[in-house]
Amino acid sequence: MITNLPEDLYLLVIVALLPLSAIMLTVQVNPYNALVIRGILGAVAALVYSVLGAADVALTEALVGTLLAITLYAVAVRSSLVMRVGVLTAEVEADPEKFEAIYDQIRAMLSTRYLRLKVLSYETRADLDAALTVKELHGLCLRSPSPQPDQPPYELTIRLRSLHDLLSTELPHQTPPLTHLIPPSSTDTPAKSS
């Protein structure tokens, strides 16, 4: 048996896990992965707190820090990282395959920033514009009223400046582009609401 081992060496080894998992959490880019790593950090933190003798803090960390925080965080990530696009029901029914291809292309562009796409269909153009005005939607995907020969026949109107910038950097990578982007009107301030 090794005798010159310090009696609380295991303490040092276990406590060293906490900064390790904390660094792991901070280098995550994908919010969903960060969610899982937060759970690991919570488990390690509960271990460290109980090793150091703070049983009540460990229990609080496990129940609130791990259980409640990651559940709320999952709900928050799910409801905020989404782009809502409005379409007209008649146009989708006229050419469903084309719209599926457009959705796939938008999903591919959004996936670099871990955003999801949610499509909402409306009966009339007036409903669509009303939904855009009250900020229910982030963008519209419609057939162009005056199609240009050098442009795709569908246009994607984006209300938010930041979202438009993101899509305009990603759109040239998609071949062939199925839509062209309409930038937000200048009166619209770059809103932060989602």
Binding site: A46, G53, A55, A58, L59
Partner: peptide, 8 residues
């Protein structure tokens, strides 16, 4: 600490 461990 044991009780905390079982609850966790």
């Amino acid at each position: 600490i044991g009780v905390v461990g079982v609850i966790i």
